[in-house]
């Protein structure tokens, strides 16, 4: 009926997802720690800054790159963290699956929107809404 259990170092391997999601969540959190320090430093730099100063900050490729990386990793982490939270508090399978899919969709859209805006500012594109 089901395949014979697989073993690795005499330890049974999970028949389903295994620890993959947990590991990705932890690695994302690990990456977010130094990035959070950088966000803190950037917040201090940009506090009260005017438009010209902010655009100059975005002109630095290191800043833009780190901001984009932070956005992607944060929303990846958020989707996994919210999955755990939803699984803890929503017992009905259908509602749970719907909510998890909805959360994933929202975080995907937020990550995409972040990259869209960051790239536009970094490229010095015309202010939005452009071309209307």
């Amino acid at each position: 009926m089901s395949a014979a259990p697989k073993f690795k170092n005499h330890v049974k391997i999970s028949e389903r997802h295994g620890a993959g999601e947990w590991k990705i969540e932890k690695l994302a959190l690990l990456a977010l720690m130094p990035l959070s320090l950088w966000v803190l430093w950037s917040a201090f730099t940009l506090a009260g800054a005017g438009y010209e100063a902010v655009v100059a900050w975005f002109g630095n490729a290191l800043n833009t790159g780190l901001l984009a990386v932070t956005a992607i990793i944060f929303f990846l982490f958020a989707s996994l963290a919210w999955k755990v939270i939803i699984e803890d508090y929503v017992p009905a399978p259908s509602t749970r699956t719907t909510l998890i899919n909805l959360a994933n969709l929202v975080f995907l859209v937020l990550a995409a929107a972040s990259i869209f805006f960051i790239v536009r500012v970094a490229m010095g594109s015309a202010p939005l809404p452009a071309g209307v």
Partner: peptide, 30 residues
């Protein structure tokens, strides 16, 4: 904290969107 950070990320996204929307929009957010 994770819940609040999610809200914070959305607000930061709004800030970046304001920068992308030009000086007037940014001045309002500031």
């Amino acid at each position: 904290t994770i819940g609040a950070a999610t809200v914070g990320a959305v607000l930061l996204l709004g800030w970046v969107a304001a920068v992308a929307s030009g000086p007037e929009a940014y001045a309002k957010v500031l």
